[in-house]
């Protein structure tokens, strides 16, 4: 018989990574108004630069800071060089451009770090049993760091002036502008936060698994799924849906096997969207 508490715990840990990526995607969507397909590769960049920093200094904290700054810097550069120039055009133009940005990031990482799998230098630790669930200290540390980062982002969004301005622009860009909100400041904050979250998520995922050029790309579909499932544009919804998706995927493995767990996630997505087209936590659109 399967150990369901163990699967739920594994799913929650996996779900935290999906949640972070989904949060980065949904923030960009709600403010810049397009699905940013480069998010996965920004994660990968964070994983590689974090790894390089840890190799050079031995410090994981410094590696985390570098991963955050890398993600933020790449996202800001992509906005300045590409996304900003396409603002006001069809959403599909920005989406396709973001796929292009993703390939460029991956190519640069491939040339810089090679294509083989790399691992963080983390001492092996023995898993401990917590109420019948086996978890390593690393699992708990990574989950704690991710949860802290999510709390920090939500703190920024709800407790700071720039966070309020970001939420205002997400609600109504024109109304925000006539209320004195400067869009360039909001976009700067958006790409710093969205990129920083993606960079840190990539590093955490790299610590938990291996670092390879496809690391973030493989996370992109579940992250988009969570962003849609949570109600696109809803940060809280993206995080909740990411956790839910992680658990659903893990819970399905005893029945369909590891290879098909993503298909189960998509079946769940389809089911939810048929029942509630705006997602679990999205705003219901109506016609006045």
């Amino acid at each position: 018989m399967s150990n369901f508490p163990q699967l739920i715990a594994n799913g929650l840990v996996q779900g935290l990574f999906i949640a972070m990526a989904a949060l980065a995607i949904t923030l960009a969507f709600s403010i810049a108004r397009f699905p940013n397909a480069a998010t996965g590769d920004v994660m990968t960049a964070g994983a590689y630069t974090g790894l390089a920093t840890q190799s050079a200094t031995g410090s994981l904290i410094l590696a985390g800071i570098v991963a955050i700054f890398t993600g933020a810097a790449i996202s800001l550069a992509a906005d300045r060089l590409v996304f900003r120039k396409l603002a006001g055009r069809a959403v599909v133009a920005s989406l396709v451009a973001s796929i292009g940005v993703a390939f460029v990031i991956r190519a640069v990482l491939g040339v810089t770090f090679g294509l083989s799998q790399l691992v963080y230098d983390i001492p092996l630790t023995r898993a401990k049993l917590y109420w019948g669930v086996r978890l390593t200290p690393l699992d708990l540390q990574v989950a704690g760091a991710v949860a802290l980062a999510l709390a920090l982002v939500f703190g920024i969004l709800h407790l700071t002036p720039i966070g309020r301005q970001m939420r205002a622009v997400a609600d109504d860009r024109d109304l925000a502008r006539v209320s004195g909100v400067r869009p360039e400041r909001v976009m700067l904050a958006l790409w710093m936060i969205s990129g920083g979250v993606a960079g840190l998520a990539g590093m955490m995922l790299g610590i938990k698994t291996v670092v390879e050029p496809e690391l973030g790309w493989s996370m992109l579909l579940p992250a988009f799924t969570a962003a849609i499932l949570g109600g696109i544009g809803s940060p809280g919804g993206a995080v909740a849906a990411g956790l839910l998706l992680g658990v659903v995927q893990e819970m399905s493995t005893p029945f369909v096997g590891f290879n098909y767990k993503l298909a189960i996630a998509f079946a769940a997505l389809l089911g939810v969207l048929l029942w509630r087209p705006s997602g679990l936590f999205g705003k219901r659109e109506g016609v006045r």
């Binding site: 002036p161 309020r164 301005q165 939420r167 205002a168 997400a170 609600d171 109504d172 024109d174 109304l175 925000a176 006539v178 209320s179 004195g180 909100v181 400067r182 705003k283 006045r288």
Partner: peptide, 25 residues
């Protein structure tokens, strides 16, 4: 110059206080 648009004239996901706090300057 202040402006009150026709229909979408508040930020629906923000609280009343936040709608006022968001105003710049």
């Amino acid at each position: 110059i202040g402006y009150v648009p026709q229909v979408a004239n508040v930020f629906p996901s923000l609280s009343i206080v936040e709608n006022l706090q968001v105003v710049g300057g």
